[in-house]
Design a protein around this nucleic acid. Sequence first.
DNA 1: CGGGCGAAGATTGTATAAACTTTCGCCTGT
DNA 2: ACAGGCGAAAGTTTATACAATCTTCGCCCG
Lengths: 235, 235
Amino acid sequence: MAAKPRPKSDAPDASDRVSRIREGVTAAILEHRLLPGTKLGEDEIGEIYGASRTLVRTALQQLAHEGIVNIEKNRGAFVARPTPADAREVFEARRLIEPTIVDHAIDAVSPDWIDRLQHHLAEERQAELRGDARASVRLSGEFHRLVAEMSGHSIYLGFLKELIARSSLIILLYRRHDTPACGTEHHSGIVEAIRKRDKQAARAQMLSHLTDIEDELFLKEPAADELRLADVLGA
Amino acid sequence: MAAKPRPKSDAPDASDRVSRIREGVTAAILEHRLLPGTKLGEDEIGEIYGASRTLVRTALQQLAHEGIVNIEKNRGAFVARPTPADAREVFEARRLIEPTIVDHAIDAVSPDWIDRLQHHLAEERQAELRGDARASVRLSGEFHRLVAEMSGHSIYLGFLKELIARSSLIILLYRRHDTPACGTEHHSGIVEAIRKRDKQAARAQMLSHLTDIEDELFLKEPAADELRLADVLGA
DNA sequence: CGGGCGAAGATTGTATAAACTTTCGCCTGT
DNA sequence: ACAGGCGAAAGTTTATACAATCTTCGCCCG
C-alpha cells in the first residue's frame, strides 16, 4: 500500500525547492520570528535558500494566497497584519468548522491516531516545561492541524491550515497577557474525549477552547505596539 | 496593442493581466467549456491572451491553489477531475458554511442589496428562458457568491469561491439528468427569506437547496465517461 | 533654513533563454 | 513480426537579463 505511482500534486513534497522556501518562511512566521509588517525581499530570501527569484516569488505567492503574506504591487511582500475585523472572522470560522472536524476525527479514530495525539501532547508539555515559547506556539497550531488530518477531510484541512496560520499572527498581535498561546490542558481534554469517542464532549471542549483563546485577545482598533501610528496615518 | 494607460488605479485585480488570464480560464471551466482532464498548455494559453508564459504560469498556480486545476510536475496543468469523495467533502462543507453565510447576509441586508439579488434572479431566469446552459451554470454559482459577498465575511467568501468552482466541476461530472444545474426558483425563495429577514427560513431553504443539488448527483466510484479506465489501472 | 524637485540606486514585474524531463516515433535485434 | 531501446521533439522548470516602478538622497530655490 505504500506504493505511490503518482504522488498527488498537493502532497507535502519536502524535496521540492519551492516547498522548502514556503515552509521555512511559514515556520518563521508561525514561530513569531518574523513580525507582521516585515518586508520579505525576494533577493534576500533567495540568498538564504540559494534559490533564484523565480522560486522565491512562487513561494511568496502561495503564502499570499494563504493569507499570511501581503503582496503590494511594485512594493514587495510583507508579513500580513490582520485587522481586528479579520481576527473576529477567523475565529468565527474556526468555531464553525473545528467542532465538525473533531466529529469526523472521532469517526476515524484508531489506536495509531491516539498514539500520535498523545505523542504530540507530550511534545507540547515538554516545550512548555522548558519555556520554549516558539516551539509552544508552533505546536499549539499543529495540534489543531493534526486533528484535521485525522478527520480525513482534505477540504476542511486546507481551510483550517489557513485559519491556523492567520490565528498565529492574530495571537501575536492582540493577546492581552503573555499567557501561553494555547492551553495544553485543553488539548489534553480534547484528546481524552476523542479517545472515548464522546462527540458531544469533544465538540463542546473544542468550542470552549476556541472561545477561551479569543477571549484572551484584545480586539480594539489600535493594533498592538507602536504600529498603530502607521495605521492612523496610512488609513 | 498598447499597454493600458492606467498607472495609478489600485483596482482589486481586474486590470491585472494575470487576473484576466485567471478569470478567463475560470470562466471557461465554470461554463463547462473546458472539460476535466483537458491539458492547459502554457504556450497555448499565452498565445490566446498575448502574454508570456511567466504570467500564464502564475495564473495556473493560483487556479491550482483554488482546486480547479491540477499541476503535475514536469507534465503540465490539467483541469481538475474531482473524485466522488471530493464531491462529498465539497458539499458537506457547503452545507456547513452556507447557512451561516445567509445568516450574516440577513444581518447586512439593505434595499440596495435586495435590488442586486433581484436583478441577479432576473438574469438567471432570462438565461434559462433562452436555453443558455452555459450562462445558467455560471449564474447559478454566482448567486451563491453574491450572498457571500453580502455577508461581508471575507474569509467565508474566499472559502466559498473555492467550493463553488469545485462544485461546478462536480456537477458536470456526476449529475444524473440534464436538469438545470441549480433551480432558479430555489434561489428566488432564498431571496424572499432574506428580504423578510427570516433567518430560520433562509437557513432551511439554503440547506435543502444544497441537499437537492447533491441528491441529483450519482456519486459512484466509476467517474463519468470513459475515464474510469485510467482510475482502475492507476489505482 | 525649510521644502520641493530630480536623478541615482534599489527592487519588483516581465520576457526570454538555457536546462532538464517526458513523450513518442523509429530503428534494430531476436 | 514484435519487443526493447535509442533519439529527437515538445513542454515544463529554472535561471538570467531587461524594463518599469518606487524609494532615497542630494541639490537648488524660495
